[in-house]
Amino acid sequence: MPLNYESLDETTRKFMQEEVEKDTENGTIYLGSYLNEEGRILWPSLLLEAAEKGDDASLAAKLRDENLLKTHALRAGKTVSVPVNAADTLSEGEFNRYYARGVCLHAISNGGDDVTVYRARTSSNPRRSSEAKIGLKYDPEELLKDLRENPGVDTALGLPNGPNSGLSVKL
């Protein structure tokens, strides 16, 4: 089930697409460690397609349907099975990051209003660190800079708050 992207409109999608294209051109798009060779090649176009007209669930379905993930990977020098939720985790995390970047650019284009953290997915056992962020307001320029400079999982501001946190931002 996709996250509830409260500010996902055509303007936010346009900004998301621009951000995906910019990262693709700069070679800074995050690929994760579980995409297979074909997945690494197709990932930027699949992410762009999801930004245009999909969501994290449609992106994860593409990864699974087209067999774009490895079945095994190295972790601490040992071969392990790729987690069954790898497609969901990667797709949710990256779609949400580009969504947050799009929301920040949307806010900036509207005069720089703050963006607000909210729970985009219901959690029966939410992390304390995630709960503490709900309702916080961030300067969109500062958050955008952080998201651009820290591809992948960790950002200086802690948004999104790690894999599967269920947090996002809205206008």
Score class of each variant (00 low, 15 high):
Arg119Phe: 06
Asp88His: 06
Ser109Gly: 01
Pro83Met: 02
Gly152Phe: 06
Ala86Tyr: 10
Gly158Asn: 04
Ala132Gln: 05
Leu90Val: 08
Glu141Leu: 10
Asn96Ser: 14
Thr122Asp: 15
Pro151Glu: 10
Leu136Phe: 13
Lys70Met: 09
Ser123Met: 15
Leu159His: 00
Lys145Pro: 05
Pro140Tyr: 01
Leu136Val: 13
Lys145Leu: 07
Leu69Lys: 08
Val153Glu: 13
Val80Thr: 02
His72Asp: 12
Arg75Tyr: 14
Leu147Phe: 01
Ala156Glu: 14
Gly77Ile: 01
Pro151Asp: 08
Ser130Ile: 01
Leu157Gly: 09
Glu52Phe: 02
Lys70Trp: 06
Gly54Lys: 03
Leu105Gly: 05
Gly77Glu: 01
Gly112Thr: 08
Ala57Trp: 14
Asn125Tyr: 15
Arg128Phe: 13
Leu143Asn: 05
Ala132Tyr: 05
Val84Leu: 06
Ser91Gly: 11
Lys70Phe: 06
Pro126His: 09
Ser123Tyr: 09
Asp113Gln: 15
Pro140Gly: 00
Leu159Met: 11
Ser109His: 12
Tyr99Phe: 03
Arg64Cys: 04
Val115Ser: 00
Gly77Met: 00
Glu66Cys: 00
Arg127Gly: 03
Thr116Gly: 00
Arg148Val: 04
Ala60Ile: 03
Glu52Leu: 06
Pro151His: 04
Pro163Tyr: 15
Lys53Val: 14
Phe95Ser: 00
Arg101Ile: 00
Lys137Tyr: 07
Asp65Gly: 11
Arg148Cys: 11
Leu48Gly: 06
Gly162Phe: 01
Tyr98Thr: 07
Glu92Ser: 14
His106Met: 10
Arg127Trp: 05
Pro126Glu: 12
Pro126Gln: 05
Leu59Ser: 04
Val80Met: 09
Gly162His: 01
Glu131Trp: 04
Asp88Lys: 10
Ser165Ile: 09
Gly112Pro: 10
Asp146Ser: 03
Ala57Gln: 15
Glu66Ala: 02
Asp88Phe: 04
Ser165Leu: 07
Glu49Cys: 07
Glu142Gly: 08
Asp114Val: 11
Tyr118Arg: 01
Ser130Gln: 01
Pro126Trp: 03
Thr116Phe: 08
Gly111Phe: 00
Asn150Cys: 06
Ser129Val: 14
Asp139Thr: 05
Ala107Leu: 07
His106Trp: 01
Lys78Asp: 09
Ala50Pro: 09
Leu68Gln: 05
Gly135Leu: 12
Gly158His: 09
Ala87Ser: 13
Lys70Asn: 03
Leu144Trp: 08
Gly135Met: 09
Arg101Ser: 10
Gly93Arg: 13
